[in-house]
């Protein structure tokens, strides 16, 4: 994957994020259980926020410069898990695993892309996306961690 300009990256990433929105929205539609539906809708909304972030960047490059980088803790729960497929009626902890894995893949993809480019602006956009997806991964892994802690008895 080669990108010439920041705009190209943004449009690539926007597509990926839109796909993520569609993924979670679709799961939300399929979910027969009200509580699950709600969870998927929340995930979709989170991904939607990424799309918005990217849209803002396209129209105003200053946003990129003012973005604040923080260290996001990485619990690495999903990193050691094998891939699982979505199945109708899957219990929520499995769904969380699925979503964690997805976010992990997104972090990996953007990390590879950031490594591939020498363009400082482009690198920065990737780093922003890495941070954003890492935040999602952290939220999902924390949810899973809380669930484990509650249910370990």
């Amino acid at each position: 994957m080669e990108f010439g300009s920041v705009d190209e990256i943004i449009s690539f990433a926007t597509e990926r994020e839109k796909e993520a929105v569609a993924f979670y929205t679709d799961l939300a539609k399929q979910a027969t259980m009200a509580s699950l539906k709600e969870a998927f809708e929340k995930f979709a909304l989170e991904e939607e926020k990424h799309v918005e972030l990217l849209a803002d960047m396209g129209s105003n490059k200053e946003k990129i410069d003012s973005y604040e980088f923080k260290t996001i803790p990485d619990l690495k729960i999903s990193d050691y898990m094998v891939e699982i497929d979505y199945k109708e009626g899957m219990p929520m902890p499995q769904i969380l695993k699925l979503a964690m894995k997805r976010e992990e893949r997104a972090v990996n993809l953007y990390t590879i892309m950031a490594d591939k480019t020498d363009n400082a602006d482009v690198k920065k956009v990737f780093n922003i996306l890495i941070q954003e997806e890492s935040k999602h991964k952290f939220i999902l892994e924390s949810l899973y961690d809380d669930y484990l802690a509650e249910q370990e008895g």
Partner: peptide
């Protein structure tokens, strides 16, 4: 590392509301 609710009974009982973890509400 814990166990989940078995969906066998809950999924075969229409109208029985579950929470997000698959437990009966």
């Amino acid at each position: 590392v814990g166990s989940n609710a078995n969906p066998l009974l809950t999924s075969s009982t229409p109208g029985l509301e579950l929470n997000r973890w698959g437990n009966i509400a």
